[in-house]
Computed example of a mutant assay.
Amino acid sequence: MKSYNILFLCTGNSARSILAEALITTLSSGKFIGYSAGSNPAGRVNPFASELAIEMGYPKEKLRSKNWDEYSLPDAPQMDFVITVCDNAANEVCPIWLGHPSIAHWGFPDPASVEGTDVIKREAFQKTLLGLKKNIEALIYLPIDQLDLFSLKKAIQDIHDK
């Protein structure tokens, strides 16, 4: 089975993109290898995102906030897909991605911006996790090898727009 590299982008790379990286990697049975990065990385993974990622079986040592420039270098893994998961990152000028990956935007509210008790914050992270999981499960089951590039890009965007 062919595996696909997928990069999830967010501004801070501390919550949504980290959760997406962990979800796609743990749910896809090797079909996708998830990566994440940010345009202005926070430098640390949000503890609530880290907790959820580890609970789903994602290795703690892979949880790292990183700059998206890391994936535009010549020796970086070539991405098949790039998906922004926050509106800020979607509106920024991204690096040039080698290999011309299919690009889509799945905007989710930032759970890290939620104020209140830890219970309220965990609920926000859980809600984001469930939304990402719904999209990622739909992506996993797309017949990628049967779609032309235009149809594939539309199908990936339509996952979130429905």
Rank of each mutant, 00 (worst) to 15 (best):
M1A: 13
K62G: 01
V85A: 06
K31W: 00
S29V: 09
D148Y: 09
V45F: 06
N13R: 01
L63F: 08
D69N: 15
G43W: 08
G57P: 06
E61F: 06
G107M: 03
D161E: 15
S151T: 11
E123H: 09
A15Q: 02
A124H: 01
N5W: 08
P59Q: 02
V93R: 14
A76T: 08
L149K: 15
A53G: 08
A49Y: 03
I103S: 11
S65I: 10
N46P: 07
L142R: 06
A37F: 04
Y58K: 04
S50Q: 15
E92Y: 13
P77N: 10
L52C: 07
V85N: 03
L139F: 11
Q78Y: 08
T11R: 02
K66R: 11
L132C: 07
S39W: 05
L142W: 06
T117G: 12
F48D: 05
D80P: 07
P143A: 09
W97C: 14
P95Y: 09
L52D: 01
G43N: 10
N46W: 04
S29C: 12
E21P: 01
P41S: 07
K66P: 01
I136R: 00
Y58Q: 05
V119S: 12
K121N: 03
D87R: 08
L19D: 02
K153A: 15
F8I: 05
K134R: 15
C86Q: 02
Y58I: 03
I120N: 11
L152E: 08
V82Y: 03
A90Q: 09
Q126H: 12
G12C: 08
G43E: 08
A20W: 00
F125M: 00
I18A: 03
A124W: 00
V119Y: 09
G57K: 01
K153Y: 10
S3Q: 13
K154Y: 08
A49P: 01
V85Q: 05
Q146S: 15
D118L: 10
D118V: 12
G131P: 00
